[in-house]
Design a protein around this nucleic acid. Structure first.
Lengths: 233, 233
DNA sequence: TAGTGGTCTAGACCACCCA
DNA sequence: GGGTGGTCTAGACCACTAT
């Protein structure tokens, strides 16, 4: 009796990957079911399941009950973006972080913002404009609206001292949302604050944050020229 | 004897999330170990493990053997980007996809590209320039270098018919890599191809693709003005 | 060295959904 | 109806690392 070696889910995932990239299992093909693979690899079905789930998470496989597991026709590339807080983003560049609140007011937001926050017209919200600096140089200009119905405490928070991003992370830690990225030309006012020329190409990030179905905040961030966002593929 | 209800890992993940957002387990705190939680929730340790692993993947917890599981000080936001192939990206906008190869040549790449591809100087690589259209309007201009040492078959592929992205997906399906995003001003030549004005702000995406340690391709993509990339938070 | 998370097993039941 | 993936259990051993 020879003891069979213990299989690991990573080894199985690698082998399945190999079969796909070598064309043993072409795009669109149905692959053997978990039980059969478990027998082939000499391991428990749960181990195969773990391996296949990982590959499905990577977008390489499509799994459906009863229908089985298929190789995706065009494997979708997935990239992950880790968004550190601004302070870390600046400090990782070896610069000193600075923060300046430019504007704080409570008033009904313009209607596109009201719609995004799912607020009825004329309901006031908290409007903030702030500048994040790296070694005194402007790094990011943010224009933010906070839904005071979702986070009433924000009205009394001192956003001159703590930036809204970190305050929200502490007070509403569990959120989902959406990110929109685009390029835009610097408006004159923005150019002045970011210390660049009007019309310069800026990296713009719009973000809506949702907590348990409630729209918490909308923020438009403009990065100073030269900013580069990195994602791991 | 009352049978205890079966616990699900999602329910446990929700409960742990709740304890974090309610401040029962503040940022930085050590939470009970898996065995204790399993006892508390009346389930198997594997179920707790699955729940905590998911929250750790989301960036909410830090888990280390022996040291235990901690609530992250500043929960890192993570966003996922699904990158469909260009054809789907265009068709999802309800437009007809078009593709045009502008340039194909084999020659040693400029040194920054050579360095990125980890190629010695003077080693030729495949250089492609192509335009992707949406309903006849230019949508994306790509400038690509392919490492022929990594994928020799690319030299004989017909990139006038099939775009390099899809060809590579079929032939080198399993890759990792890195994505860089930034904003840039349109150069005159680029402006003409993208049908916009020189100096217009463009969304630029640089991508390096790695297969099993080998640098496969580097590509710089310029999107026509107005493009917006969306990520799920 | 001891305590923690990481993983594997063998078995079971269930949810889904195609035929 | 029946086959598939999805999950849970109870138990075990292992890998890592703080102390």
């Amino acid at each position: 009796m020879t003891a069979r070696p213990r299989q690991s889910w990573t080894a199985i995932a690698r082998e399945v990957s190999r079969r796909i990239s070598d064309g043993d299992w072409p795009a669109g093909a149905l692959i053997p079911n978990e039980a059969d693979l478990a027998q082939e690899f000499g391991c428990a079905r749960a181990t195969v399941s773990r391996a296949l789930r990982e590959l499905a998470d990577q977008g390489l496989l499509d799994r459906r009950r009863r229908a089985g597991t298929r190789v995706r026709e065009l494997p979708e590339r997935r990239a992950r973006l880790d968004i550190p807080v601004m302070r870390q983003q600046v400090e990782r560049r070896g610069a000193r972080y600075g923060y300046l609140l430019l504007l704080r007011e409570v008033l009904p937001p313009p209607s596109p913002v009201a719609a995004t926050l799912a607020l009825p017209q004329q309901v006031p919200a908290l409007h903030l404009r702030a500048l994040h600096n790296a070694d005194e140089a402007p790094f990011l200009l943010e224009d933010r609206w906070i839904n005071l119905r979702a986070v009433p405490d924000a009205e009394t928070a001192d956003f001159a001292r703590e930036n809204a991003n970190e305050w929200l992370l502490r007070n509403v830690p569990l959120t989902t949302g959406e990110l929109g990225l685009t390029a835009c030309a610097a408006a004159p006012e923005e150019a002045e604050l970011l210390n660049c020329a009007p019309g310069d190409a800026l990296f713009q990030q719009d973000r809506i944050t949702i907590n348990d179905g409630e729209r918490v905040t909308w923020v438009r961030s403009l990065y100073a020229p030269g900013y580069r966002m990195r994602l791991a593929l």
